[in-house]
Design a protein around this nucleic acid. Structure first.
Length: 277
DNA sequence: ACCGCCGGGAGTGTGA
DNA sequence: GTCACACTCCCGGCGG
């Protein structure tokens, strides 16, 4: 689908509408299609890209069939968010978004599966907007975006942006959202830092590297690894950082164990980041 | 100097 | 219309 010829392309309000109609159309098609992707025995994962000039594409991946006996673990988009309001109002211990598992107990992750990005589940007449972390997870599953964003360690949900192409990913995100102005990595990273407050994604103390909250990862449909959840980089350990991108880092206990020592993320950072001392 | 990162704060679009 | 939310956008600053 070509929406414009030649960069820079600015998404207009009309284009946003077109996007909405496009999603509606896909919605309908997927309900009526006889393609394998509409087979109830399969889940599908689809990436909507409308950005030919940037190389963002529509892609559809068949990851794994769902066992017929297994009910589709579709994320309930109406469930309570991991939002900061919990952090602020409830006095709940950090991290609000971390699954409530006892320390040291393995967390059962669903096997690799499809998760529905499109059609986006609706409640009422509205449609839940795509969140940045959802888009990033989607991009991480997209081989076409591998030159922009990659898993650092799928087991613990760490990923990194490819320095050379991180702006391209940001532009794709901006276009996906229908922004008028061009999204930059700087702005996207600002949004990512906001996730640190709610715990959905935290910054790993390594260049261009972030980490999904395990609960988010679980909701998004898991990753290609086993159920082992590992902690973020142990900043207090030797070197204070993980290895270079691409090298699986070895961590100690699970995420909860790490953060469980710090009621609030800020405290965790304070205790581990010299700049916060 | 450059880049990545951080955080404040105002503005914006959307859904309820 | 109002509100909350999730960014978006701009800025100044810090550190490697």
């Amino acid at each position: 689908m070509v929406l414009a010829e030649g960069p820079p392309y600015k998404m207009s309000a009309l284009d946003t509408d077109i996007n909405q109609h496009f999603q509606d159309a896909i919605d309908v098609i997927q309900h009526h299609s006889e393609s394998p992707y509409s087979d109830p025995g399969y889940k599908y994962y689809e990436t909507l890209g409308t950005h030919q000039p940037l190389g963002c594409q529509i892609s559809c991946y068949l990851v794994t069939p769902t066992h017929p006996d297994t009910p589709s673990p579709v994320y309930d988009w109406t469930s309570a968010p991991l939002g900061s309001q919990h952090l602020q109002s409830s006095g709940q211990s950090w991290p609000p978004g971390v699954p409530e598992v006892s320390v040291g107990q393995p967390v059962a992750l669903e096997p690799p599966q499809f998760y529905p990005v499109l059609p986006v589940p609706r409640h009422g007449k509205g449609r839940k907007k795509l969140r940045l972390y959802e888009y990033l997870h989607e991009a991480l599953s997209d081989p076409a975006m591998a030159d922009s964003i990659q898993w650092t360690d799928t087991a613990n949900g760490t990923f990194h942006f490819v320095s050379k192409n991180k702006e391209r990913l940001a532009e794709c995100w901006g276009q996906r959202k229908g922004n008028r102005k061009t999204m930059t990595y700087q702005k996207m990273a600002r949004a990512l830092r906001n996730y640190s407050r709610s715990g959905e994604i935290i910054k790993v103390r390594r260049k261009l590297t972030y980490q999904f909250n395990p609960a988010i990862l679980q909701r998004l449909g898991g990753i290609d690894q086993g159920p082992q959840l590992r902690a973020p980089a142990n900043p207090s350990g030797p070197g204070g950082a993980q290895g270079p991108p691409g090298e699986p880092a070895s961590y100690g206990p699970d995420w909860y164990s790490w953060y469980g020592h710090y009621p609030l993320q800020e405290q965790w950072f304070s205790a581990t980041d010299p700049r916060h001392l």
